[in-house]
Nucleic acid binder design. Structure first.
Lengths: 227, 227
DNA sequence: AAATATTAAATTGTTGACAATCTTGGATCA
DNA sequence: TGATCCAAGATTGTCAACAATTTAATATTT
């Protein structure tokens, strides 16, 4: 585990934020496993800071959906059950719909970097590069939300995406049908360029719901079980 | 400003949480005004605690949408512009729609306390008691979200409702057309009892959008302006 | 006089020590 | 043997002092 000082050169940023960023990486990479308790003293020592910033960072991550606080028992890396994951899909669907709606309103015919991203995903899908597609897919959705121009919406969706990553870590990386997924992206993109906001909403919502179905279908095979 | 010790009898709750609750009241009542900086030392002294809990409470309120942190400058009570308020209405609309959808799925024909609340609102509307209607309306929506049974959805909507209250405090209490608003409640209620989830979503979403329009219409008269 | 640089005051950020609470392991008792 | 109680250890919560940064007030320069 690398020391926090490596990042400390970033200015006008508080130690707590640096620690939070570091912890977010540790959590999303699985080094801090879902359900695990975060020992303030131990982590503080490892990062070379005192307990204060670790505590504050934990609280920051709470609002990002990655950590859960229990009084006098400590901070725990959140654990997402299958039922919760499905619930999150639904919330993400309606919020993504709203993002597409706003993006279509504000785009003014210009899809920005979305076109480029879509093309690169097309290539990744053709050559069956799932990891590449996964990364680009994240960027595509991020870009979509940015175009919507609502920091509130961004925070909410980011939080949901974070939580999704807590479900069995990499399990989401397996993308059953990249070609189909990207066709849906194309349709959203077209609606945004046309400026048809209501259509963009419908397509965005449906796209996430389709993702949910793809996940459910894949999950049925492997028969994973949760509490 | 009353002392924190009055609340301290609550067990298994940390000081930070007590302070957060107290601060939430101070903010929503306007004693801590929107945009104002929260002086940690001053507030800590007033509440009879040290700066630590006040800091942690501020962070808690950040995730509830009531406070904004700026590094080395402190915690500020959030200030919501008219544009943001309208944006929040839209987000609340889609999330309320989702809440109604889930409520209809899980209700199983039983609307719980919603019926009673609706009746009482009817009376309040008839006798033109806006304050009473306002309070019951909050409860109705709260109950709706509870029935949906998603803590995540609850947190998100609560946060948005909190933020709405930061817009000129009481301005939202003026309810232009209680009778119409309550007719919409009735329709939602019926859809939930019928178990028609998709219809409940539509009506719930439309209800909040109608509220937005009612607000915009009222606002047009008074000509309030924002940055 | 206006703009800029400088210094002092106020405020937030961080730390280490101490208090309160929970957890664990062993002793006691039925 | 099993359950319950108690004490010791580990861990979180709170505090007060100190460091870092920002804000303001003042002096300086043009």
């Amino acid at each position: 585990m690398s020391d926090i000082d490596l990042l400390a050169l970033r200015q006008s940023s508080t130690l707590s934020e640096l620690v939070a960023d570091k912890m977010e990486k540790l959590i999303l990479s699985g080094e801090l496993a879902a359900g695990e308790r975060i020992n303030e003293a131990v982590l503080a020592k490892e990062l070379g800071v005192s307990r204060g910033p670790v505590r504050e960072a934990s609280m920051l991550l709470t609002s990002r959906g990655l950590v859960e606080f229990i009084a006098f028992r400590g901070a725990f890396v959140r654990k997402i059950s299958r039922a919760e994951l499905l619930e999150i899909y639904d919330l993400r669907a309606v919020l993504t719909g709203q993002a597409c709606y706003l993006a279509a309103l504000k785009a003014g015919g210009d899809a920005g970097p979305l076109n480029d991203l879509h093309e690169r995903m097309e290539k990744a899908a053709d050559s069956n590069k799932a990891d590449k597609y996964y990364t680009l897919n994240l960027k595509f959705h991020e870009c979509l939300v940015d175009m919507a121009g609502s920091s509130r919406l961004r925070t909410m969706i980011d939080s949901l995406v974070n939580e999704m990553h807590l479900y069995r870590q990499v399990s989401l990386r397996s993308h059953p049908d990249m070609a189909q997924s990207n066709r849906e992206h194309r349709a959203i993109l077209d609606a945004i360029i046309e400026g048809d906001a209501e259509k963009a909403r419908e397509l965005g919502e449906a796209h996430v719901r389709a993702g949910k179905k793809r996940f459910e279908a894949a999950g049925a095979e492997t028969l994973v079980e949760d509490e």
